[in-house]
Design a protein around this nucleic acid. Sequence first.
DNA 1: ACCCGGTCGTTCGTCACCGAATTGTACGGG
DNA 2: CCCGTACAATTCGGTGACGAACGACCGGGT
Lengths: 211, 211
Amino acid sequence: MTNDRVAGRPSGSVRETQGALLPGQRSITEAEKLAEAKLGGIPVHRERMAAVANIHRAASAVRHHLENSVLRGSDLTWTAFVVLWVVWIWGESETRHVAEEAGISKGTLTGVSRTLESRGLVRRTGHPTDGRLVLLSLTEDGEEFMRRVFPAFNSEEAFVTAQLSDEECRGLASGLRRVVLQVEQHGEDRRRSLLDGAEPAPRRSGRRARD
Amino acid sequence: MTNDRVAGRPSGSVRETQGALLPGQRSITEAEKLAEAKLGGIPVHRERMAAVANIHRAASAVRHHLENSVLRGSDLTWTAFVVLWVVWIWGESETRHVAEEAGISKGTLTGVSRTLESRGLVRRTGHPTDGRLVLLSLTEDGEEFMRRVFPAFNSEEAFVTAQLSDEECRGLASGLRRVVLQVEQHGEDRRRSLLDGAEPAPRRSGRRARD
DNA sequence: ACCCGGTCGTTCGTCACCGAATTGTACGGG
DNA sequence: CCCGTACAATTCGGTGACGAACGACCGGGT
């Protein structure tokens, strides 16, 4: 039993014992306090925890909303749309760059891009001089699709950020960009130093070593 | 052909033609300009687009980093850890609340909680008076696990936000919270009014209607 | 006592996604 | 010219996840 006097509560669901509780705002600050109490003395970086937790809350809420509004009607998955968007914005690109930009693995991109190809939205062409590379580009149908669907997508982006001013959006984007850069620039070193000495890592899914 | 003079570029990869290009910062602002040019006149909510895009970039980067640092060593998936975290923070809870808080579906939670149960980290008990409910709580092993692993997790949360001051973290969390609240409070109405009149929605995966 | 609309967690069909192994191409020495 | 190395995309085994259908259960009305 640890810190029962602080973190303790009557039996039954916590939510029920607190009455009507809006998700989000209050629950996350409650969570911070409870976490600190749970750890009993060990300091918690509360702002960091709240920021990171809310990044994921927001990402999942936004993705869910977009999947069930604009994307559902187009019969496209989130990932497929992101890939389409990346190729649309950047123009003809090598697959490894598209995969990185879209935040998916190369293996996943192979499948997604084939799906998009079979729907006539993207074109896959070999690189003229380097036979290892494959270039992705939008077909005319793909261009037309994005001209039609992106405005709707962007409208929902505006909807989900409706509580924020333009200036606040800029601040938000700037903060998030710094998080992305931090991980991209120092993440690998950090991970290496964390398990320094230790074996690289086990793995629970995916193809097994042939060995 | 639309706006070729504005959006046009020499053939080959865009990335190659721009020289060394840091991912993140520059690419997203480039993307905004390119998108606007692509749409040729139709206004784009640039700040909104940048904010939303960066939410997903950041979420995926942070998740990736955490999965490959603290979680890999514990042989837990991201989702399993989030569920564990929610139950740890909130104490014994009904499954539907845990699922919502963790941002996953009820069906997924069934599988995840069984996995966690089989590892002896959580306990599943029937509700004393309502036979439909199942309550989740941490076992003593689960408590011990979180006391050990959460500090490491929190340290990585601090790492990914290292470029931000405490004050900036608070601002970031606040902005994201408003996004979450906006979707939670008005998202369903919005989706309903968007496809108003139209058929509810098709579906591409999952169990088929029995006909 | 019995239905009956509503709500709970679980089941299950159907993909999405990851990442090691694999395959194929490029290119710089011997 | 033919290797060996490097690096590309693809293949494929495996898990993760969704969400409609389902069965168990609640509680109020008839």
